[in-house]
Each structure stands twice: as structure tokens, then as C-alpha cells.
Nucleic acid binder design. Structure first.
Lengths: 148, 148
DNA sequence: CTAAGTGCAAATAGTTTGCAATTCG
DNA sequence: CGAATTGCAAACTATTTGCACTTAG
């Protein structure tokens, strides 16, 4: 369920940046699926609609989007960073990662049998840390890889 | 509380590898603190006792140690991988990371107000994943950075 | 018009690889 | 001895930077 296109331009202005076409398209691509895009995947997607795009612009825009807090950047250990549109202002993330093929799934949602708010408070106290969010990652073998 | 030195040689042999001096020292360094070493930090430590060491050997030994499962490799987003001796065969990890200075603390232990075994089973069922472990990371501002 | 943004090419930085020399067992 | 291991230098890869050109507002 991709978000509406119309708002992107306004968003850039709201953050104090120009709403250029490359930027809009990059944001659209990020919103086009709940995939965990690498910079190059985004670059390739954008290029279909805007052939003149440069990888540099993709990196710079991603950095901007991470800075304003609308995109999260992850490292899943395969040497390339992954970028994901932040959902509903959440600072927390949960992923399931296949250690064989690298497939990544989101596991956000209400299924958590855990009160992470309480957990975060506990950690804050114990380590004297102002905890602002958490990332939880489960490692394992996915369905397809298990079948082989 | 560094682990005993005498055993390292045997361990390499047990895994089917030669117990060379560089390898032993690298393992000793990894066991010398509960720090999260980058490859270069290990390289510099090893060099104090074995000046001829090369960065390549460090990388290759780390890869070996990760492969046999005695070392875990992490990416905390600062562009360099971190390596950590696995404690007591655990596949799970919990870290607290300062988003300002990058400081990393371990938060392993009994304080977890969470039954992760049950959580993992739930994820396994829901995503058809054979979950083997988890990494949990809390992000926030550490004591020192907060003081500024 | 003009500061902000872009894209190319070159520079970086961490990590990996080819290969001849060395060493463990 | 002979295969495993090492270390150097070169290669690689993802990402960043310098800079002249372009464009949004």
C-alpha cells in the first residue's frame, strides 16, 4: 500500500529542502514496497523513470532522508547498507534475516509477546543510557533455503 | 577475566586448523576484554606482541573464527565490522549503542524481562523460519554524551 | 538571479585476493 | 617434506568528495 505521491514535495519543503524530481522519485521508490533497498537498487529503480539520475544523488538524498528521520539505514552484514521508509514515526524495528540467502522480512506488528517499553526503561536505568529505540533481528533459515 | 591461554592451540587443532602464533595471539586479544574489536584494533593489539603480523592475517583468522562459530561479527553502522568472542555458545546478543559517540556496551544477562525462547518460536511459526538466534540492539545517548 | 542541487570523475576506506615465501606438524 | 599459512601489493566495492554545470524558487 504505497503512500500518496502528492505529499512528497511538501515534505521536502517542510524540512527546508528543495523538492527536486530526483528526490521525489527516490522517495516514491522507497514508498513503493516494504522492501529493504540498497542504494543501488534504488538507483536502478529511479533510473527507469529518470535515466539521468546519478548514484551520488541517491546517496546524498538517502543521507538527507535519514537525517530528517523519515528513512532508516541498516546493515545486515552483506557489505551494503539497506534503506527503509520509517513507518508511522516508529524508531523501533524488527527483522527476520535468512543467514543462507540474505532474505529480509519485516516483523513489525502487534504480535510481540514482549513489553519493550518496560524493557527499554530497564536498560535505560541499568546503563545510564537515554534509550530512544531498539532494533531486534532474528537470524535463521528461511522456508525456501530449508527446502533445499 | 581473560580465558586461559593454554587451550587455544588445542581448539584450532580441534577445528582442523594449524595453531600458529598469529592465530593464538589474535584469539587471546579477542579474549582479553569484552570489547567489540574492529579488525584494525585487533591488528594493533597483536602487533605489540608480534610485530610482523599483517592485517590480512587478522581478517583471514577472524573469518575462520566466525566460520567455526567462536566469534560473532557485527555491523554497528560506522563502516567497520566488529568482532566479539561468543560467550558460552550463545547465539544471541544484546547491545546498547550510543548514537552520538558510537560507544557499545553488552547487555547480556539475566535481567531480560522477556521470554525470548517463546518469542523465537512465535516468529518461527509466523514466518516459516527456522530461527536460530537473535540480536537485540538498543539505541540512545550514553551518560557521557548526555552530560555535554 | 543565485543558492541549492546534480552528476561526473576521482578519491577513500574497509576488506579481499593473487602469489611467492615461510612454517607447522 | 609438503600442504597450510602468511604478508605484501594490488584489486575490489561501497560510499564520499571536489568541482563545474544546472535548476528550483
Amino acid at each position: 500500500m504505497p503512500r500518496r505521491f502528492m505529499g512528497w514535495g511538501r515534505m521536502f519543503h517542510g524540512w527546508g529542502y528543495r523538492a527536486t524530481l530526483p528526490r521525489r522519485i527516490i522517495l516514491e521508490v522507497l514508498a513503493s514496497g516494504n522492501k529493504h533497498f540498497s542504494a543501488e537498487e534504488i538507483y536502478l529503480q529511479v533510473r527507469r523513470r529518470y535515466p539521468g539520475i546519478g548514484l551520488t544523488t541517491v546517496y546524498r538524498t538517502l543521507e538527507l532522508l535519514v537525517r530528517v528521520g523519515i528513512v532508516s539505514k541498516f546493515n545486515f552484514g552483506d557489505g551494503r547498507a539497506r534503506y527503509e521508509l520509517v513507518n508511522e514515526g516508529r524508531k523501533n524495528h524488527c527483522h527476520v534475516v535468512c543467514i543462507n540467502c540474505g532474505r529480509i522480512l519485516d516483523c513489525e506488528g502487534a504480535i510481540f509477546p514482549v513489553d519493550f517499553e518496560k524493557f527499554m526503561q530497564k536498560i535505560s536505568r541499568k546503563f545510564n543510557f537515554k534509550v530512544e529505540g531498539y532494533h531486534l533481528r532474528f537470524y535463521g533459515i528461511c522456508e525456501k533455503c530449508e527446502a533445499k
